[in-house]
């Protein structure tokens, strides 16, 4: 009945291609490293469940690949959601003060050396706490006075919270020891080197949950493309949709940032690229940008740990450079075709 609609076929093919790309990227990510394992060997070792190769796969590469996929997907999805709600192509999860808050939380934790005194879990916990405080502030400050949510106000407050948080973080850095500064900077640059499997699976769980929740709001998101007022004319509860979408995007960003640090550009560039390829219909855009972000971060991570092996580049460096170049290329191509 719907197959008459040629869009459905296009969407299906797009999603299948992206899933295939995720699988390829994941296999590549499992196979390269200090110890190269060929793809057929990966499957053999995984069946055997013993040996050094299996230990490397099971303890290091599989968790790391899963984390890359879930963080990349979450950040890209959050970017798509926020750009949709704010109808501003420059918004990304970090514009909204979420990463600023998380970074401040982690900086305080490191300065107070809570991660040594209490538990290493304090690092992601304080990151998440910081992210959550800034989400809460943005949300409260922009919706308190008048019952209606003012989108531009929300955006400005997000940017300001971001600035305040980074200034506060600089303050803490200026009063602490050199080692602490180094750990803060290291954290800010972002890393997918997370030994705690529980954190990795938590991150994956919330990324997928975020994707599921956002799919409940595809119709409002599609209507919001017309502008807030015109979406209201179509009977869409814009205020509630914007709130839920904002909170969803914030929570998945907050969790990603607290597990893996500030990995920039994924949430800005992947949504743009995916949108320019498959269009703006959120029914396919949400899943496609989630998968696209996953692919991008898995590939970036492979580069980050192979370029100067056995050392590792900060993943944020790779995503920034790769993302920026890809984006400019795509943009200039688009300008030519217009």
């Amino acid at each position: 009945m719907f197959l008459k609609d040629s869009r459905l076929l296009t969407w299906l093919v797009t999603i299948l291609v992206l899933i295939a790309m995720v699988l390829c990227a994941a296999l590549l990510s499992l196979s390269v490293g200090d110890m190269d394992i060929s793809v057929p060997d990966i499957l053999r070792y995984l069946r055997l469940k013993e040996g050094l190769e299996f230990a490397v796969l099971d303890n290091i590469r599989i968790p790391r690949t899963i984390l890359a996929f879930s963080v990349g997907g979450a950040l890209s999805l959050a970017g798509t959601l926020l750009q949709g709600v704010y109808r501003n192509p420059l918004v990304e999860p970090y514009t909204m003060g979420i990463s600023g808050g998380a970074a401040l939380g982690v900086a305080i934790c490191i300065v107070l050396e809570l991660h040594f005194k209490v538990s290493s879990l304090m690092l992601p916990l304080s990151g998440f706490f910081g992210a959550f405080v800034s989400i809460f502030l943005v949300y409260r400050l922009s919706s308190k006075r008048n019952k209606n949510l003012n989108i531009n106000r929300m955006l400005l407050i997000g940017v300001m919270i971001s600035f305040i948080a980074s200034s506060a973080m600089l303050f803490f850095m200026s009063v602490t020891t050199a080692e602490n500064i180094q750990s803060i900077v290291f954290w800010i640059m972002g890393s997918l080197n997370e030994p705690n499997k529980f954190l990795i699976y938590t991150s994956l769980f919330f990324s997928v949950l975020g994707l599921a929740v956002s799919y409940l709001y595809v119709v409002p998101l599609n209507a919001l493309r017309l502008g807030e007022v015109r979406a209201k004319h179509l009977g869409v509860k814009t205020d509630r949709s914007i709130k839920v979408v904002f909170i969803t995007a914030s929570v998945i960003t907050g969790i990603s940032v607290s597990v893996s640090g500030v990995i920039g550009f994924v949430g800005l560039i992947i949504p743009h690229l995916v949108r320019s390829i498959i269009g703006t219909d959120y029914r396919v855009l949400l899943l496609a940008s989630f998968l696209g972000g996953g692919i991008f971060l898995i590939m970036s991570d492979i580069l980050a740990r192979t370029i100067i092996a056995p050392n590792e580049l900060p993943i944020g460096v790779i995503t920034g450079m790769l993302g920026g170049v890809v984006f400019i290329t795509a943009l200039s191509k688009k300008l030519k075709s217009d």
Partner: peptide, 12 residues
């Protein structure tokens, strides 16, 4: 139903 003066020039 409402028709406003301008419409968002969206790419669909």
């Amino acid at each position: 139903a409402v028709v406003t003066q301008f419409s968002e020039p969206i790419d669909i």
